Simulated assay, not measured.
Amino acid sequence: MKIYNLKKTQYLPISLSEAWEFFSTPKNLKEITPEHMGFKIRYSSGGEKMYPGQLICYKVNILPGIPVDWVTEITHVREPYYFVDEQRFGPYALWHHQHHFREVKDGVEMTDEVNYAIPFGVIGRIANSIFVEKEVKAIFDHRSKVLQDYFQNRTVTV
């Protein structure tokens, strides 16, 4: 199985507590996901705040008009510094997504690191090179722009 990696770091002009509040609330994921993906949370165990062991079930379009179920588990949480979600059921053979937050001068440095694998062996590797890798990158580029716009006029409050 070939494992691919995407790492994206972004500065946000908000406090560490504001970053944690936004990113640790599963319902905010819809706000930063491209609209064409038709993202919907179907179920989230245990309420609105994340915790280790929490399951979140989504419906998402992996290709236009092709919705799939995707279940992730929050496996690690160290508030307010990082959390990890891993796919339990969905379109990938492996999905391991780390979210890291670090306080820096006048804001927060946020780093997303995703390790993923595509099923179907050689066919999956070809699919990754043709469109999956581009789509994963486009999703995180979209998130980056939405977050920049959303937080651009904020003043860091400690």
Rank of each mutant, 00 (worst) to 15 (best):
K7R: 15
K27R: 12
I118T: 11
F101G: 05
G46N: 04
G38F: 07
I118Q: 10
R42L: 15
I66H: 04
A93H: 13
L12M: 07
T75V: 11
T72I: 14
L29E: 15
E133I: 00
I32S: 06
T157P: 00
N5V: 14
V132Y: 06
Y4C: 01
F131I: 11
E21Q: 13
V71T: 14
Y58G: 01
D85L: 03
C57Y: 12
N61V: 01
Y58C: 02
S44T: 10
P64L: 06
A138H: 09
V104F: 01
Q10C: 04
D69A: 10
P80Q: 10
V108A: 08
S15K: 03
E73L: 04
F23G: 00
V132A: 07
E73D: 01
Y92H: 03
I66L: 14
E18T: 07
D112H: 07
L55W: 05
Y116H: 04
R102M: 11
L147V: 02
Y51P: 03
G47F: 08
V68Y: 04
S24Y: 01
F101W: 05
I3L: 12
P34A: 08
K8I: 12
Q54F: 06
K134Q: 12
W95R: 01
R125A: 13
T75I: 02
N128V: 03
S17M: 07
K30Y: 04
K8D: 02
E31L: 15
H142D: 00
D141S: 13
I41T: 06
T9W: 00
R125H: 14
S17D: 06
C57W: 09
K105C: 07
S129F: 14
Q87W: 05
F22T: 05
T155C: 08
P26Q: 09
L63K: 13
D85N: 05
A138S: 12
L63W: 08
I41R: 10
V77S: 08
L63V: 10
P67K: 00
K27I: 13
V158T: 11
P13I: 02
S17P: 01
F89E: 11
L147K: 03
V68M: 14
E135T: 15
F131L: 12
K27Y: 06
G107C: 09
K8Q: 11
E135D: 15
T72A: 09
Y4E: 11
Y4I: 01
P52Q: 05
R125E: 15
I66M: 12
E35A: 12
E18R: 11
W20N: 05
H36C: 02
I130E: 13
L12R: 02
N28M: 09
A93S: 15
K2Y: 09
V71D: 04
T155P: 00
M50T: 10
Y116V: 02
L94H: 12
I118D: 07
E86S: 09
R125I: 08
G121N: 09
M37P: 03
L55Y: 09
K105I: 10
G121K: 10
K27P: 01
Y51W: 12
K59H: 07
E79V: 00
P13M: 04
W95M: 06
P80W: 04
K7V: 14
G121E: 06
